[in-house]
Design a protein around this nucleic acid. Structure first.
Lengths: 69, 69
DNA sequence: ATGTGACTTGTAGTCCGTG
DNA sequence: ACACGGACTACAAGTCACA
């Protein structure tokens, strides 16, 4: 399975780890619920592009980078 | 205003025009309603990443390309 | 062929918790 | 610090008539 949700999941997880931040910190900084962040990184959520933009903003990367294979 | 919705709007519109396809054709090929496609290109919709992936697939570009500034 | 408003239904997204 | 679940609420998904 290599659908768009799993691509996002991998990219968010990797970018977050590289910044050394926890899911809870990311949640706090983005204003997104911690359980929702967890769901995104597990590939079981289908977020809107606004959510993607918020995460990208906090991680200081381009939104498009979160969708690259 | 240069938010994520307008970025997507511009990219979808441009990529679609370059392929020479109408909104109706894009709607038919993606299975998305014509008026919803219209809303995306006007930047008033906040679609999920699955919707973005469907459109990218039909336009034969990477999903990430639809989010680049 | 497309823009737009007004919907209804499904799910995105939140908030409480547990192990 | 994270996975996972239940019960919500907000908003995206999807449709229509009309310009």
């Amino acid at each position: 399975m290599d659908d768009i949700q799993n691509i996002l999941a991998r990219n968010v997880h990797q970018a977050r780890q590289e910044k050394g931040t926890s899911q809870e910190d990311l949640a706090g900084l983005t204003g997104i619920d911690r359980t929702y962040v967890s769901g995104i990184e597990r590939g079981i959520r289908n977020p809107s592009i606004k959510i993607v933009a918020k995460i990208a903003d906090v991680l200081r990367i381009a939104p498009s980078d979160l969708l690259v294979l």
